[in-house]
Amino acid sequence: MKTVMVMLSAALVAVFAPAAQAQQGDQVAAAAKNTPVTQGQPPAKEQTPVKPVNPFNRLMQDKSTFNPPPPEDGIHDPGNEGTFLLQPPREAFGAFVKSNFGNRVDWVKTLDEGKINPRWDRLDPKAEPDVLDLNIVRVVRGSMPDVLYPHAPHTKWLTCENCHDAIFVPEAGKNQISMAAILMGEKCGVCHGKVAFPVTECRKCHSLKKEAVSKN
């Protein structure tokens, strides 16, 4: 009986290894049900706290781990007193427009809907950006939909000199952009994939449908 149980548990562990933490409670409970508790056994050691697992896909991050307070986020030092004085992100993000990527805030919509009003000038709270409403279409050679680059949401956060001319030459056809360059942190990748929304969100940029190609 015992050998069978060991084999069974080993098989379970092999199959569910990465998800094992979430099921830890269940399996221990099941084990307790099947094996009679022997009197005089030392009490089970206190279990190490583990992060919960996303029920949809165990490889994805669980919602409860989004936006943790600084002492629990893994890069702040919990041994540092100042860490505990810093504002936890969730406290600030309450009313913001949510998204499914990055730090789970849709910053462009949050700004457009007036949930935040970050200063355009360090000292003058009334300074307003010069928003340029100019869309640029980039025809993509591959099978992905073409890219529509809107100046408007960009110029609400940035000024022209941030991108022109060091990153992009302001002239049609003068900028060679590739996904490889973006992934390595060049061109759009200077911000996208670091601070602005990540490059996993293909269709946010590749948003224009291609025209059907006819054979005639």
Partner: peptide
Amino acid sequence: MITLGVPMIGKAYAEYA
């Protein structure tokens, strides 16, 4: 379970950016 759980502990969940 504890042995398997160890690699997951200490993973950084800090904010993007």
